[in-house]
């Protein structure tokens, strides 16, 4: 008997990742899962939007109207967000932060379209956080002297006594873990809550779960997207400092 299903209420409750297609990759069993399918749908939506935006901007009118207004508004808002938190180094990061913001936002609110949000899979959020981690340390080596980095690494103690380095290493590696787990756990808890409501209450869950969707998918998803991008920018700009190359 499946007690795990029983604990979650019934056989109709379903929020797990399902394997769709199995293939062999150098002797390993690898699955194509629902996450892959959902992420492809999200990517197709974004690519379609990007092509439409490109066509529109290529023959942009002096007085923008309709769709061009929307595209310009999105780009201006995203660039403004990067500007306020990164200062002088902002123009280099417009592209990355904007892309990640739009991708995570559409992924989070794709629960409204009946998909299982791709960000509710730890295999999606961990690479995003690892990119952040790589960028933090790349920019650290780009903008700071090795001497300063060494002093930072043994920071509470003087630089000739490097016994504090393991603790600082843990705090470096805690950054991507906490970034990815925060996003993952938020979206996963939203997915599980809505699945439980729909699975347990059956016909009783007719119209009012819309409020639940507004909070768990739209509000929580948007806030977590903002937090992810904000923390990425804060970490990177704290490594850049005043922006002078060493």
């Amino acid at each position: 008997m499946e007690y795990g299903i029983l604990l979650s209420g019934g056989a109709d409750v379903d929020f797990m990742i399902h394997g769709i297609f199995q293939y062999s990759f150098f002797g390993h069993k690898v699955w194509i899962t629902t996450t892959h399918v959902c992420i492809l749908i999200v990517m197709m939506i974004l690519v379609g939007f990007a092509i439409a935006a490109n066509r529109c901007i290529a023959k942009a009118a002096q007085v923008p109207g309709g769709f061009q207004n929307v595209v310009e508004l999105i780009v201006e808002k995203l660039d403004g967000m990067v500007d306020t938190s990164m200062g002088k180094a902002a123009p280099k990061f417009y592209n990355y932060i904007g892309t990640v913001f739009i991708f995570i936002l559409v992924s989070n609110i794709s629960g409204l379209l009946g998909l299982r949000p791709p960000t509710a899979d730890y295999g999606v959020t961990l690479p995003l956080a690892l990119i952040t981690f790589t960028m933090i340390h790349f920019n650290k080596w780009k903008y700071q002297r090795p001497k300063t980095i060494w002093e930072d690494a043994c920071s509470p103690l003087p630089p000739w006594l490097p016994i504090w380095i393991p603790i600082n290493l843990i705090s470096w590696f805690a950054v991507p873990v906490s970034l990815s787990l925060r996003l993952f756990a938020n979206v996963l808890s939203g997915t599980i809550m809505t699945a439980l409501v729909y699975g347990l209450l059956k016909w009783f869950a007719t119209i009012w779960p819309a409020a639940l969707h507004i909070y768990l998918d739209l509000f929580s998803g948007a806030i977590q997207t903002y937090v992810f991008c904000m923390l990425t920018m804060t970490y990177i700009s704290s490594e850049i400092g005043d922006g002078t190359r060493r």
């Binding site: 604990l7 979650s8 925060r182 756990a185 938020n186 996963l188 937090v227």
Partner: peptide
């Protein structure tokens, strides 16, 4: 949203215990 993280760690442990077993 940042302060929420510690609570979500507890929630994750609960999910692991219930569903991954």
């Amino acid at each position: 949203a940042v302060a929420e993280t510690t609570g979500l760690y507890g929630l994750l442990i609960a999910f692991l215990l219930l569903f991954v077993k």
